[in-house]
Simulated assay, not measured.
Amino acid sequence: MREKLSNYFSFVFEDELIDEIVQVGTYKKLRENELLVDLGDKMVGVPLLLEGAIKIVREDKKGDEILLYFLERGDTCASSFSSALSHRKCGIRAIAEKDSEIIFLPIAKLDEWLVKYKSWRNFVIDSFNIRLNEMMETIDTLAFMKMDERLYKYLMDRAQIMRETALTTTHQDIAYDLHTSRVVISRLLKQLENEGKIKLHRNKIEILEF
């Protein structure tokens, strides 16, 4: 675990902080589509993503989901962090988009590290800023983009997060993420294919303009 931490975080955290994370953190592997945290969960730790990608979604009163943002290697979940510090139940659902590796950091250390390590304080502030900007981008997308533009942006963002130009997914899964119907997604995907931006395969979408 220390090697993975050092590979990515040696230029982010002090060696002393990395040593503490190794001592108190809980290492966990997630399979693709495995649930990390769910709505209403009591947060006993905060995830630090070492490898993979995590999808963060919200759910409305009807049970419909909407995608908020993705986490990638080196990220933590600001929403989980906030819930942990305030001892509130989790307000998001986090699902592994691909096989992933995380370290759960205990709540008891979060406040202590904010005072003890400047690198940790900067990391947390940066994480909140990044997630806030992504949330604002999500709002702008919903308010100002047409569905075909939202769909193409979603595909490009996901390809970047997954570090793959061929996305394994279904039309229904995309519809869930974008809070629309499968019929609409299927029509718009075909439109994007006709425009030469993507190539459709069975349960896979290849991004041609990346």
Rank of each mutant, 00 (worst) to 15 (best):
L5R: 01
R163H: 10
L132I: 12
F70W: 15
A166G: 00
D157M: 07
Y154F: 09
T141A: 06
Y69E: 07
R182M: 02
D64L: 13
M156L: 15
Q172P: 00
A96I: 04
I103T: 02
H171P: 08
K28R: 15
A166M: 07
R182N: 09
G25A: 08
I198W: 05
E101M: 11
M1G: 13
S100E: 14
L67C: 11
D15K: 12
E59Y: 08
D41Q: 04
K61G: 05
S83H: 13
A159R: 06
L67D: 04
S100Y: 15
K62G: 02
I102H: 01
F123W: 09
I198A: 09
F144G: 09
C90R: 02
A96Y: 05
D126R: 13
D157E: 12
L105A: 00
N129Q: 14
S79I: 00
L151M: 05
R121W: 05
F9R: 11
D111T: 11
G63R: 00
L71C: 11
L85R: 12
L35Q: 13
A78V: 08
L142S: 12
I125H: 09
N133Y: 09
T26H: 03
T180A: 11
Y152S: 06
E112R: 14
L5N: 06
L110D: 12
I174Y: 08
N33K: 10
L68Y: 09
V183P: 00
K146Y: 07
T141N: 10
M147T: 15
L30M: 09
A84G: 04
D126M: 11
F210Y: 14
R2L: 14
S186T: 07
F128P: 05
Q191S: 13
G45C: 14
V37F: 07
S82W: 05
E72N: 01
E59V: 06
Y152G: 04
L85F: 12
V184K: 12
Y176F: 10
S86A: 13
M135R: 14
V124W: 08
V124E: 00
K204L: 11
F210R: 14
T76F: 12
V44A: 05
S119Q: 03
D19W: 04
T141Y: 01
C90Y: 03
E209G: 03
I139L: 15
A175Q: 07
G40I: 06
A175F: 06
V46C: 07
S181T: 14
Q160T: 13
G40H: 03
S186D: 07
S100C: 13
R202K: 13
R158P: 04
V46M: 07
V183Q: 00
K190W: 00
F9C: 12
E72S: 01
R121Y: 05
L167T: 02
M43L: 15
F70E: 01
R121P: 04
M162Y: 11
E51C: 02
Y176G: 02
R187I: 00
Y176T: 02
I125F: 13
E51W: 10
L5M: 09
M135T: 11
V44M: 10
A78M: 15
S6F: 02
Q172H: 13
L167F: 07
G25W: 09
Y176Q: 03
I107W: 06
D111R: 14
S79R: 04
E32V: 08
F13L: 01
F70K: 02
I125Q: 08
